[in-house]
Amino acid sequence: MNLMLIAMILALLIPIYEAWQDEDIWQKMLAFASAATKTSVMILVVSVLRDDWMIGVVGVIILSVGNAGLMLLAHLIKRMSEQ
């Protein structure tokens, strides 16, 4: 199980690296979306690993609410590049 979590961290490093090296804002947004999903799933995995109900609730809330901020940011950036 520990090994699986380390593999997940490696998968998380890919979008982080992508967000760093790519200059296009939409590629960065994609990397952000990928990283946000991955971190919340990792929170869920950790909560099941430790059998901690409280962390699991936080993971689910982040998973279901955190994407809304991403959509707001996407619309703002779209307005920006229209002008």
Binding site: W26, L30, T37, A74, H75, I77, K78, S81
Partner: peptide, 17 residues
């Protein structure tokens, strides 16, 4: 959420870019 987010990102990036 991931389906909706995919649509939103595609819509925003294609018309804005």
């Amino acid at each position: 959420w991931n389906t909706v987010l995919g649509y939103v990102l595609a819509y925003c990036s294609s018309s804005g870019g």
